[in-house]
Design a protein around this nucleic acid. Structure first.
Lengths: 219, 219
DNA sequence: CACTGTGAACCCGTTCACAGCA
DNA sequence: TGCTGTGAACGGGTTCACAGTG
């Protein structure tokens, strides 16, 4: 199953969830887990779990379930978590600086390697072992071929322009916190984190009782 | 079309995008816009725009397009943006405090009315006009019936327990930054913002060339 | 016997295409 | 004529159900 058929992007997102649980399960010393149990932990059905995994290969043992450590290894490999992924951060405001201080991703194989801002006040400031540089020099990252991922946390006004610079410098994936739709070349992947948008989904739900069908949702 | 048929949740999310653009368009002094142009701004097709709007009513004029101010009014009403939505924040760490300082939502009709943390260091600290309270007292928000939305920015360990307290206190919608799947009663809506998950989607894309089909995606 | 892997059925959001209206 | 509103067709992700296997 490894090839040919395209994989739903939502399946990839769920693999992250499974990996998280499987990692925890392994730390608990367990060595086997069924699709049903993994489904319980992630709020999904057993069939969904099996179907998702089946896109990538056959990891289970009939009548027994999955070998925890084998499954973990496989999923880490699928998600590229055996590499370390350097990230460039553009924008060191409220959110940007929270991310710089956030210990969460380092443990997950991601780390912010460069940070840029346009404000005189921010440039030169240090966070741990990285120093904020002038956003005008963001093109310098082109020299560092390992940087393929950017976090864009600049203001709305600068977002598109900075995105263009990032893409021109070799960035392939952008996590965008600015409240706008970025226009990027084909082949560049953008994921948006739009807090107002999220909250507006809530205010809709609260304002329009029972217009929407399902309650909980993933990511 | 106002009733009976269920509305795709993704359509609601897109209404946010449309509203943003329409608001901008109005500020530019324009008074009409077509579905095609709105589609350009949001990276969607004209048909998608029309279909989304059609779920909520008929706002357009055949042969002419949409009246900008009427459309804006309608979409604001749909999303409940004529109300002001108080929010409770649980967890004033890196992300929580960034959100407390973030001016973005106030302008969007959302504001953090209460903030809680478990750390001695944080309790009592002031951010603007709100004071961080002890998370043990989070049940106090039950008295404030207007609080229906929570932002959960506590550590993984505390997340489920705090979520339970929030729900018990009347919260109906939770924006969850903790990297876990919350178990909540039916009727409570959770949206997850999981940064590691987002980045893992990138590392997958970069590791597994061409296994996924589409490039850019919304929210 | 329990649980996986998977074709087939189902469901639902998106896209199409065109009738209808200003 | 130009653009909306929408039923119908389409596509693809999810669910079902069961054959297959350790």
């Amino acid at each position: 199953m490894q090839d040919k058929k395209k994989i739903p992007k939502s399946a990839v997102s769920r693999i992250s969830l499974y990996l998280r649980e499987v990692t925890r399960i392994e730390e608990d010393g367990r060595d086997r887990i069924s699709s049903a149990e993994l489904g319980d932990y992630t709020g999904l059905t057993d069939a969904q779990v099996r179907k998702d995994l089946s896109h990538f290969g056959q990891f289970g043992i009939s009548g027994t379930g999955y070998d925890v450590s084998k499954l973990k290894t496989a999923m880490r490999q699928i998600l590229g978590k055996d590499n370390i992924w350097p990230i460039v951060l553009a924008g060191v405001g409220n959110i940007g600086s929270a991310l710089l201080r956030y210990p969460g991703f380092k443990s997950q194989g991601f780390f912010i390697k460069e940070a840029f801002d346009s404000s005189r006040k921010k440039i030169g400031r240090r966070f741990g072992d990285i120093t904020v540089k002038d956003i005008k020099d963001i093109g310098d990252i082109e020299k560092d071929k390992s940087i393929k991922i950017a976090i864009l946390a600049v203001s709305l006004e600068g977002a598109q322009q900075v995105a263009d610079m990032l893409v021109a410098s070799g960035v392939r994936c952008i996590l965008n916190f600015a409240p706008c739709v970025l226009k990027v070349n084909n082949g560049v992947v953008v994921r948006n984190i739009d807090l107002s948008n999220e909250l507006e989904n809530f205010s809709f739900t609260l304002s329009q009782p029972a217009m929407l069908k399902n309650g909980t949702e993933i990511s």
